[in-house]
């Protein structure tokens, strides 16, 4: 019985090493391909470097230790007769392994790996807005809004516009300014037939805090564009009515369907 337990422990160790290497490769792959930023904001790129290095270092500690244990034979261990016994003793040192160092708990760590491989990385879309809501006037620090306003109007993205509009008490200042933005189409029951919202998800740190922001678009052919499709919009800001109040909107002169950008999120 003892022998079987030892065998199981050592094969569990092998599994742990595989999972650690797998996680390291997973972080590495997401980092190198840039898919990492589907999940977290770019300023946290170094986190994945930390993860890759530590995953591999932890994986290495298993093998290296085993080799060294052989060296220790002569001076440290008093009761070891074979290699397997070594490992048993070793696991006692890490005492907490007894109760829950089982197969199930090790396999749980493989779940992110499996989901990461099975489910193709996809960014949040209009479908996720149903749960998360969309914000036309979200709180912005005045610094962020001021920074957005330093950008030439035609260069501003959806987040810049949303910030600028949310922070101002005088939306008139935007009327007549040219807009040229990319985003996905979002609409719900609040929108008139000739309106939709050109929206983007913004991340602060990771997708768990993703917030959709958008700007209202006014166009006669608005209904032609399906929810969640990506569009490039050119037009001019004018006043429109949304939910019975005056709001700045882009009066579109040109709406072109487009591909999802490589970086679909905007980062706060």
């Amino acid at each position: 019985m003892k022998a079987r337990f030892q065998l199981k422990q050592s094969s569990l160790d092998v599994l742990k090493v595989f999972i650690l290497i797998g996680l390291g490769l997973f972080f590495f792959e997401r980092f190198v391909t840039g898919k990492l930023y589907f999940y977290i904001a770019p300023r946290f790129w170094w986190l994945s470097v930390v993860a890759v290095v530590l995953c591999f270092a932890l994986a290495a500690s298993f093998n290296l230790l085993k080799r060294d244990e052989k060296d220790e034979h002569e001076h440290d261990h008093h009761h070891d007769h074979d290699h397997d016994h070594h490992e048993h003793g070793h696991d006692h040192e890490h005492g907490h392994d007894h109760s829950h160092g089982n197969l199930f708990s090790v396999l749980v760590l493989a779940i992110p790996l499996v989901l990461g491989i099975m489910v193709a990385p996809k960014t949040l879309g209009a479908n996720a807005i149903e749960n998360r809501g969309i914000s036309t006037d979200f709180a912005v620090s005045s610094d962020a809004a001021a920074k957005s306003l330093t950008i030439v109007p035609s260069q501003r993205n959806v987040l810049d516009w949303a910030r600028a509009i949310a922070a101002t008490t005088e939306p008139e200042q935007f009327y007549g300014q040219e807009a040229d933005v990319i985003g996905f189409v979002y609409r719900d029951s609040r929108f008139a037939d000739n309106q939709f919202m050109v929206a983007r998800f913004t991340l602060t740190c990771c997708v768990a805090d993703a917030l959709a922001v958008g700007v209202i678009v006014q166009a006669d052919n608005a209904a032609d564009f399906t929810m969640d499709s990506w569009v490039k919009i050119k037009g001019t800001f004018q006043e429109t009515t949304f939910e019975d109040s005056a709001m700045p909107a882009i009066y579109a002169t040109e709406i072109t369907p487009t591909e999802q950008p490589e970086q679909p999120y905007l980062y706060q």
């Binding site: 990492l36 589907f38 999940y39 977290i40 930390v50 993860a51 990385p121 996809k122 990771c206 768990a208």
Partner: peptide, 15 residues
């Protein structure tokens, strides 16, 4: 959506 949010939290917290 679930997988994306889950991986988002995990990728940020695991390091």
């Amino acid at each position: 959506t679930f997988a994306t949010i889950f991986l988002g939290i995990f990728i940020e917290a695991a390091p």
